[in-house]
Design a protein around this nucleic acid. Sequence first.
DNA 1: CGTATACTCAAGTGTTCTATTGATTACTTG
DNA 2: CAAGTAATCAATAGAACACTTGAGTATACG
Lengths: 245, 245
Amino acid sequence: MTSHHRDFKDRLYAQFARVGKALGSPHRIEILELLAQGERPVDSLAREMGLSLANTSQHLQALRQAALVDSRKEGLFMYYRLAEPAVFDLCATIRRVAARRLADLERLLNQHFGSRSQPAAVGIQDLLERMRLGDVIVLDARPASEYEAGHIAGAISVPIDELQKRLRSLPRDKEYVAYCRGPYCVYADRAVELLTKSRRRARRLMEGFPEWRAAGLPITLADSPARHGRRGDPVRTRRPRRSSA
Amino acid sequence: MTSHHRDFKDRLYAQFARVGKALGSPHRIEILELLAQGERPVDSLAREMGLSLANTSQHLQALRQAALVDSRKEGLFMYYRLAEPAVFDLCATIRRVAARRLADLERLLNQHFGSRSQPAAVGIQDLLERMRLGDVIVLDARPASEYEAGHIAGAISVPIDELQKRLRSLPRDKEYVAYCRGPYCVYADRAVELLTKSRRRARRLMEGFPEWRAAGLPITLADSPARHGRRGDPVRTRRPRRSSA
DNA sequence: CGTATACTCAAGTGTTCTATTGATTACTTG
DNA sequence: CAAGTAATCAATAGAACACTTGAGTATACG
């Protein structure tokens, strides 16, 4: 009975460790954070992360083996997504533990953000309150495809790369709250910087879209599957009829 | 800026992956689950898990590097404990994802528990309700040292190995709820089995002590540091004066 | 039907991880 | 101070892992 019981325990913990193993690679964590924004095809991930296609594919296989992601094929593209909301919880908890306990991480963050002379970040509850009062513009600084896949209800999409040239079309009399992928994403910081330089009041949301969604707050989802073109290309989905462009 | 930014991201995710890596070994997960019951010295962990002392120590170093555990020295013994409650959340989330998504795990559990003809398990809320009504005996089936380190307020300690011989001292007119280390621990199942065989009404608590504590429900903590003797030995703490035993 | 594209697979290589062994350190006790 | 115990350290062999490269598969498109 005892050795049989050992055997059961070993198998049991081996299963749990399958999930843990998948979380043991920096690249795989990054993939999960990206997929938390919405589903994406392999080559889009590979390009963003600077990995080879084959390597990215292999990491995705590893994540699938650990049951952390699912996929769906559409034409040539294989779209991967988080298998369930709990997977994002996993990432968030890891971040929380790391942030609280790892001195190296704190040093790294101080070094990178330390000298930011920005207005304090806004919390999710603060933003909710503000939105109810209606005196705020919520600005999504992520790439357009991520906005399309899902965004905070009522937010406008201004990808960080386009903000500069779209500045003049943005009203001056409102206060801005910019958000992006998460607490460690810099897009919102850059947006706040640009907005502040142009004499607008702006602050960043501390959290990102995934945290907002996980809190069960109102979001707008894509009506059709996400689209991911390469930078600069005209975005193509299935069946592009050039006459209808 | 871009390559510098890549560098930052790489360092950032490397930090998160430090935590993930620590969760990638079955033995380390088991250690964390044991430490969730309360602090323990190295050799006590090693003996329970059937690992060598050196190996166990190394795993603990790995966990410490990932900032998941802390330690404290008392005499010859080095007591390890979870660094913070969020570490248990991590384990619990991993279990949840694995339970929902891994077919292998489901198969393993069916194979091991599948044929259990036991009364349905009780949830934490059910138990709370019952305790308020006062018609239930809450029985802690874990080893005495874990009970001493912390247990559900009002529970009695009946380690599973002693239950058989203590049966006659247990009242027959009450209903029992047995709990142990967690949902995959079998101590409570065995306790229910023995109690049922002796014509008592008994059910197990679905969750274990760590889940109860994580829910913020009332517990009783050790007044003094935990003690872990080897089986059968008289429990020794610091400064044992044989006259006062 | 041929070409291009997105992805996967398989093999190879260098690295990292795990567990063992034996030695060493730290502390307690007599 | 010598002996015993808990734990760590150091060295090592074998396994597992990550990334590359090149080939192979499936789908789309002209």
